[in-house]
Design a protein around this nucleic acid. Structure first.
Lengths: 215, 215
DNA sequence: TGTATCCGATACATAGGTGTATCGTATGGT
DNA sequence: ACCATACGATACACCTATGTATCGGATACA
């Protein structure tokens, strides 16, 4: 590796960073950012604090990076779904079966309970940190773009008409999804029931948005 | 006060409790529950920790009580609005002016930035504490009941028709409101702009829900 | 006015977390 | 195979928060 790069620090360091990030995701989701000690994160990852401070400057920096990672993952998942839909276009559902469509799009971001907790944690802290807020809002906009496209694609494929512009529909879907996930997690439902209930809630909104065929 | 009550501890104690609760609301909103030290709360209230531990058992207990208080206040505000509408019924707006209606109903819960932060904090912790979760969900249900009634009243007064049952409409309004408030607070908008933007967002949803007159 | 009681302040003991400085070792390059 | 370096472990000093136990003063009631 006689690269132009001044330093080749990328040996197993990336691995350590990744393990710390994974552990942090778990611990932060479980007890929250502020209640989570650096030591707890390290213990979970199988390191000591020496490793931590060798890789990150502070807990906040790690949290920022973690937030960026999960945001990126979510956006990527949606984008992948868009590509999938545009490539295949293999939808064989009845146009009015909103729930079916929703479920098919939804399982992309199969959100477990911890995922919901982590996102909530990020959202909560974004309210106080301008840097996090900017990242959070940007990610949300990206999500809107992706979902808007999905809606567009589906509408075109099925020749559906909407009562609102696709972008607004996308926003509605996303906020409904967010709030439904949180409510489900709060009610302590297991994963399956959680998904079911979330789907139903979103499907209701979808049915409201979709213009019924003028038969 | 030779009451039947076994103990008449209610001298100025209630005052102290109230002041501590007020201070806690501020501090928790500003830095979050976990980052807020008991000492910070006491300092804000003008007391020392002695007063705190004389009135509350722990920070968590205080938070639980605070949550109950703000939840009660919100529900009361909505209920008062319901009573106001049912008593007066003085709506002189055009039926299609969704934004006008929304604004008139909305200013009830004139939410400042700190209020949003505090609610977010409560919501976030409710995800991990069953007791808080139960309280939070119960409050939300009460809010839904109130808003449902408001929607019903308005609909009756204006002979509007909806595309969805009033209860679902209420849920949609509330989740939209919640998410819009959070987004506004995140974007760092001032109070006025925040209200305006939130109103617009809700009005759009209202317009979607309201069935247009079949002219 | 005297007295008992309640309430908040003060002082103290302790724990847990943080960040840094140093050390030993594994690894990569030649 | 050797050397240099990077990486993570260990140890240390500091600090902040917590909870309790005790003290002093104010207040209610006679």
């Amino acid at each position: 590796m006689t690269d132009t790069a001044p330093r080749v620090t990328t040996r197993s360091r990336e691995n350590t960073r990744a393990r710390l990030l994974d552990a942090a995701a778990e611990v932060f989701a479980e007890v929250g950012l502020d209640a989570a000690s650096v030591e707890a994160v390290c213990e979970r990852a199988g390191f000591t604090r020496g490793a931590f401070y060798s890789n990150f400057e502070s807990k906040d920096e790690l949290f920022l990076e973690l937030s960026a990672r999960v945001a990126g993952e979510r956006v990527d998942a949606v984008k992948a779904r868009v590509a999938e839909l545009e490539a295949g276009g293999g939808f064989a559902l009845a146009p009015t079966d909103a729930l079916g469509i929703v479920e098919e799009v939804l399982d992309v971001s199969g959100d477990d309970r911890l995922g919901v907790l982590l996102m909530s944690e990020i959202r909560n802290h974004a309210l106080r940190s301008p840097a996090l807020a900017a990242a959070y809002l940007a990610q949300e906009e990206e999500m809107v773009r992706g979902v808007t496209q999905i809606i567009d694609d589906i509408a075109r494929a099925k020749t559906l008409r909407f009562r609102v512009p696709p972008e607004q529909a996308a926003r509605l879907m996303l906020t409904t999804w967010e709030s439904a996930s949180v409510r489900a997690a709060m009610a302590g439902l297991d994963y399956e029931a959680m998904c079911r209930r979330t789907s139903e809630e979103i499907a209701r909104v979808a049915q409201l948005i979709i213009e019924p065929p003028t038969a």
